[in-house]
C-alpha cells in the first residue's frame, strides 16, 4: 500500500509582502495537492501563489505552477504538483496593503 499523508505547513499565519511556507521534505511522494484556505476574509487583493522547488531546502526556484490565493473566509484554492524532487513550498508576493491569514495543507502520496 502506498504512503499517504497530510501535512500542515502553515496554520493561522498572516501573510503580507513576500511570504512562503516552511520547507517540506517529501522525496517519498510522487504527487502533491497543495491547498490554501483563508481563515479570515482577505485584506485587499492577495493575488497569486506559486509552487517552488529546491535542491537543498535553502535555495528556491519556481516550479511553474501558479494559482489564485483565496479571498473569502473559508474559501479554498489548490494546485496539483508532481515530479517535484525532494523539497516543496508555497510562496507568494502579496501587494502592499494586502494580507491573508492562511491554513496551508499538503496532501502527499507515494
Amino acid at each position: 500500500m502506498r504512503t499517504s499523508a497530510a501535512a500542515i505547513v502553515a496554520r493561522n499565519e498572516t501573510w503580507t509582502g513576500a511570504a512562503a511556507t516552511e520547507p517540506y521534505e517529501a522525496g517519498w511522494a510522487d504527487e502533491a495537492v497543495v491547498f490554501v484556505r483563508a481563515l479570515r476574509p482577505a485584506v485587499g487583493r492577495p493575488g497569486r501563489a506559486r509552487i517552488e522547488l529546491s535542491p537543498d531546502g535553502m535555495r528556491w526556484v519556481r516550479e511553474g505552477t501558479e494559482f489564485d490565493l483565496p479571498t473569502g473566509q473559508d474559501e479554498v484554492t489548490f494546485a496539483r504538483v508532481d515530479r517535484f524532487g525532494t523539497w516543496l513550498r508555497v510562496a507568494a508576493d502579496l501587494p502592499e496593503g494586502a494580507s491573508l491569514t492562511v491554513l496551508v495543507t499538503l496532501h502527499l502520496k507515494g
Binding site: 505547513v9 521534505e25 535542491p55
Partner: peptide, 23 residues
C-alpha cells in the same frame, strides 16, 4: 478560534520523512 492557541504551540509544524539530504 485558533487564535486561542498558546504561541509556543502555534509555531509547530508537521514532521517529515527524510533521507537527510544535504547540499
Amino acid at each position: 478560534t485558533l487564535d486561542a492557541m498558546l504561541p509556543g504551540y502555534a509555531q509547530h509544524l508537521s514532521p517529515m520523512l527524510s533521507t537527510l539530504p544535504n547540499w
